[in-house]
Nucleic acid binder design. Structure first.
Length: 593
DNA sequence: AGGGCGAGCCAC
DNA sequence: AAACGTGGCTCGCCCT
């Protein structure tokens, strides 16, 4: 491996010279070394900035400890990082952006993210790896030695450490060249722009964190724990087996593991319950009316799930430095471009108010602005299909599901029953996923022939929708790929002789452009919001696919709510033009609508 | 002992 | 003949 030419910057004069040099370039490589992964509980040690003639390694330890944001000697560096030019290339720029924002107080400007670029070119292939080493190997046929990455960056640095640090930044320059070629070849430049512009907003969301009231959460947990114990006892009474030895007070009971499907099936069989081929809730549901034990079991599962997935672990993830939850958002989390979220996944907090009311503004008096797109996926479907009936339904301003019900069941809009509307709602949402009669039958309880009838009626009502979805499905099979409105590419790999895989691809072909465009819209909205909320007390604290939660000072809540709504609508209107884009906004103390 | 996997269930 | 899409988390079970 060729050695990388580098220069360690330790004085104010050296820094000024380095920045002057860097500012002459239109593009520079950027990497950082930190003592740990969490910006609130670790130090930013090095910032490496690469040009074709070498790497400037800024040793922040030489610039005092702590207040880098107000250190006058670092002003040129802050200016360089914040400016739109030179473009900064980074691999997973979110990570560096968070440290730079928290430690130096500046938003990184002008980003090219090699991780996101690589993910876009891979077009949803979840097999492909995207570590810097993997990407450098794929595009440059070079490897990046990672042995120093986990070394100690606290104290004096070895030549090997500095060499490693320099190389990680230097390699980004040629890597970008190759990735630009790949992005162009795949017509992904526009989509890449959308993604890159979203990095800083996402970094800020993670830094902001979401406030969760610890005491209330714990109280909620103990209430659920009591309920769980009651239900578990009840179930063990019924399902437990007689132990070999009884006692003076009767036969002993041996508990079964209620979370083991195997033991559960055996126990239910023993008491004569006709267990279906699986113990999934929706399979057991029909038996609940006849067998009280099933009803209790279903209730137990809900409570158990709540306890294990949304329990103490949430408390453990509260950051001691901020008292808030700083979840990890993966910007391209799904092949469709949707976000994924971990540690904790605050995109899947149960809807029940007992949970949601634990999330609030902080400190006292801060409000939450909760804004979500109204039926965005169905509006995207209206846009893509151009179906006049569907478009009219939205433009009429009337309740879509009611209008659909009226059309499918041939009744006046005012005559639609609650049941019919509910039916239509399931239909409308189902078609987005490429639903079939089989599934619709199970979902609604009507027979398969009747489900087929309803679907036929639905698609003859919305012919344009039928045509569009068929074509989307066929194209996915024919071209082995789909695109979203931003041009995001998703490739499909399937065995062309396997009917199941073909129908899977057809469903993907229907769903991917819709779900993916919804993700495009949210990302565009985050970019617009970043600019519209700057200088206010507003902070984005959570995003959930079609919803944005913003925390704001009480006196600004009304104004911010308006701005959020306007930005989100504008983002939607960039992709959806034939029907109105609607955003529903509420101001609340807690995350409850 | 600990990783991989599937089942189950939460969100959208 | 047709099994509705995308994730994460936790558990039991099976394997090495």
């Amino acid at each position: 491996m060729a050695t990388t030419n580098y220069q360690v910057v330790k004085t104010e004069t050296q820094l000024r010279e380095a920045v002057e040099h860097l500012e002459k370039h239109s593009v520079i490589g950027l990497d950082t070394e930190t003592t740990d992964l969490d910006p609130y509980n670790s130090r930013l040690r090095l910032i490496q900035l690469a040009t074709p003639d070498g790497v400037r390694i800024i040793d922040l330890d030489a610039f005092g400890h702590g207040d880098f944001a107000n250190n006058e000697a670092l002003a040129p560096l802050r200016r360089l990082l914040a400016a739109a030019r030179p473009i900064k290339i980074a691999h997973n720029a979110k990570f560096d952006a968070k440290f730079i924002k928290h430690k130096l107080g500046v938003d990184l400007g002008g980003l090219f993210d090699t991780l996101l670029a690589s993910q876009l070119v891979s077009a949803g292939d979840i097999e492909e790896r995207h570590s810097l080493d993997a990407v450098a190997g794929r595009y440059l046929n070079e490897s990046v030695d990672k042995t120093e990455r986990l070394s100690n960056w606290e104290f004096d640095l070895s030549a090997a450490q500095l060499e490693y640090a320099a190389r990680d930044a230097a390699i980004l320059l040629p890597l970008r060249e190759r990735l630009i070629e790949a992005l162009k070849t795949n017509a992904l430049v526009q989509c890449a722009q959308l993604e890159f512009e979203c990095v800083m907003p996402v970094a800020n969301i993670e830094l902001n964190g979401f406030f969760m009231q610890k005491e209330r959460w714990l109280k909620q947990l103990s209430a659920v724990e009591i309920k769980r114990a009651e239900l578990a006892n009840e179930l063990q009474e019924i399902l437990g087996v007689d132990a070999a030895q009884g006692s003076l007070f009767g036969p002993a009971r041996a508990n079964i593991n209620l979370d083991s499907h195997q033991q559960l099936t055996e126990a239910l069989n023993r008491m004569g319950v006709p267990v279906p081929d699986s113990t999934r809730n929706w399979k057991l549901q029909p038996l609940a009316a006849q067998y009280p034990v099933i009803a209790t079991l279903l209730e137990y599962r809900t409570v158990q799930k709540a306890l294990t997935s949304y329990g103490q672990n949430m408390i453990d993830l509260i950051n001691p430095a901020t008292g808030r939850l700083h979840a990890d958002f993966r910007q391209i989390g799904a092949p469709t471009g949707r976000f994924a979220c971990t540690n904790p996944n605050i995109q899947q907090v149960p809807h029940a108010v007992e949970y949601r009311r634990c999330f609030s503004g902080h400190p006292q008096g801060r409000k939450l602005v909760i804004a979500d797109y109204s039926q965005i996926e169905l509006r995207i479907l209206a846009q893509f299909s151009g179906d006049q009936g569907f478009i009219d339904a939205f433009n009429s301003g009337a309740d879509l599901h009611r209008v659909t019900a009226a059309q499918v069941f041939n009744v006046a809009v005012e005559q639609v029953s609650k049941e019919q509307r509910d039916f239509a709602k399931r239909l409308n949402f189902g078609v987005v996923y490429g639903i079939g009669a089989q599934r619709f039958s199970i979902m609604t309880g009507v027979g398969v022939p009747e489900a087929e009838n309803v679907l036929r009626k639905y698609f003859s009502t919305y012919r344009g929708l039928d045509t569009y979805l068929r074509e989307a499905a066929n194209r996915a099979v024919r071209e082995k790929q789909s695109r979203t409105a931003s041009g995001r590419l998703v490739r499909f790999r399937f065995d062309e002789l396997d009917r199941q895989q073909i129908s899977m691809t057809q469903r993907n072909g229907k769903n991917t452009p819709i779900q993916g465009t919804s993700a495009d819209i949210l990302k565009r909205a985050l970019r617009l919001l970043e600019d519209d909320l700057r200088g206010t007390s507003a902070k984005i604290v959570n995003i959930i696919h079609d919803e944005v939660v913003v925390e704001v000072d009480e006196d600004q809540a009304q104004e911010i709510a308006k701005r959020v709504e306007r930005a989100m609508c504008s983002a939607g209107e960039e992709y959806v033009r034939s029907v109105p884009v609607k955003v529903e906004t509420e101001i609340a103390d807690e995350w409850v609508k």
